[in-house]
Computed example of a mutant assay.
Amino acid sequence: MQRQWFGRLCLVLVALVASGCLQAEQENPLLTGAERADAYLPLLGDERVGLVVNQTSRVGDRHLIDFLRDRQVKVQKIFALEHGIRGDVENGGKVEGGVDGPTGLPVVSLYGGSYAPSEAQVADLDWLLFDIQDVGVRFYTYISSLHYLMQACADYGVPLLVLDRPNPNGDYVDGPVLEPDFRSFVGMHPIPLVHGLTVGELAQMINGEGWLEGGAQCELTVIPVAGYEKSMAYSLPVKPSPNLPNDLSVRLYPSLGLFEGTSVSIGRGTDFPFQVIGHPADTVGKFSFTPRPVPGASENPKHRGKQLSGQDLRREPLSIRFNLEYLVDWQKRTGEGGEQYFSRPGFFDKLAGTDALRRAILAGQGAEEIRHSWQPDIRAYLERRQPYLLYPEG
């Protein structure tokens, strides 16, 4: 396990140069980090590897687990995050450890008990490899799991390899920056709600800004996406979680995710989650839907069995960005007071990363006034993140 940093750094640089990672590749096809095998297989060699993967961890049409094993990589175990390694565990559902049926590899759950592996669970590893598709929203918990993994790697001396993937919401930055008092598993870093970073860029920022406990840093290697710019539209080849079934739901997720702390439904328990908005008291909407149990996605959805009236957003353009107007308008449409509308105020504040948003809405402020209040923090963040960017902003 003990090795000289210099020797490993030389090996990383040799692999990156040989694969073209350090050259401009704008004219080349987009290749995810996982698809750039020539850049990372030399690093793994015959060393023992633990994988942090799920259903999005693909190399073409193959799962990364199978791809690595076919190339004689010594995969020792799999670490499972929220939704499990096959992506079939519903939001917040406990992820069980055990054995992965298709491969026979041991599975260690990092969701439902501990968020970080123990020293014993990584003692037999020479590398920890992270390859998970993120959606670029602070409260999407894969990046919180990344933080805990980085902490474990720093604490126990295990190097971390991140195979980067595009951010489908990476073309802009918006929303309140998280305040320290509202730090939780649905928001761990002082970044905007829509942060505009890939997982690899965020990992570099976590290290560089000293956000791990005690300012620790883990030994980090990021394999970048080839041919990627932040302005590019990116269609996810595999849905990242049960309630984000398509590209539009991913683009609407920043806007509709905050409704999880309110009395309003955003389509959990339907065939179109995160693509509609509804409430039993709404009298304006021409569209209606009835939430029902949906195994693996929402077995006890909000307003279960009730007909809700509201908005059908399925014709919104894929260019849509964070829309605060939905949240402001729907307080009026429900006809509810603050305590009823913000039915889970503490959770709402954790999602928002501040209580200022909820208080501003209750005070009757409009969307533009609220958004204006974020701008100084966003400008400071954009400057702060600059050293960690891996891709042109386009």
Rank of each mutant, 00 (worst) to 15 (best):
32 T>W: 05
234 Y>M: 06
173 V>T: 14
326 Y>S: 05
180 P>H: 07
72 Q>S: 15
55 Q>G: 11
392 P>L: 09
32 T>M: 08
306 K>P: 05
294 V>R: 14
204 Q>T: 00
74 K>C: 13
173 V>G: 07
296 G>D: 10
14 V>Q: 14
138 R>W: 01
287 F>L: 01
385 R>W: 01
224 P>Y: 11
337 G>D: 15
19 S>G: 12
297 A>H: 13
149 L>V: 07
111 Y>N: 11
215 G>T: 05
83 H>N: 05
6 F>L: 15
99 V>R: 13
269 G>P: 11
174 D>A: 10
240 P>L: 05
376 P>T: 13
178 L>F: 02
246 N>H: 05
199 V>Q: 04
48 R>I: 02
141 T>I: 07
75 V>A: 14
238 V>H: 09
370 I>K: 06
74 K>A: 14
86 R>V: 13
351 L>P: 02
172 Y>W: 06
254 P>M: 04
389 L>K: 09
9 L>G: 05
184 S>W: 02
176 P>Q: 01
241 S>E: 04
153 C>I: 06
159 P>A: 05
359 R>V: 02
185 F>N: 06
55 Q>V: 07
119 E>M: 03
341 Y>K: 09
325 E>W: 05
385 R>I: 06
228 Y>N: 07
222 V>A: 12
199 V>I: 10
283 T>Y: 03
26 Q>L: 15
363 A>K: 14
386 Q>G: 02
138 R>G: 00
316 E>V: 10
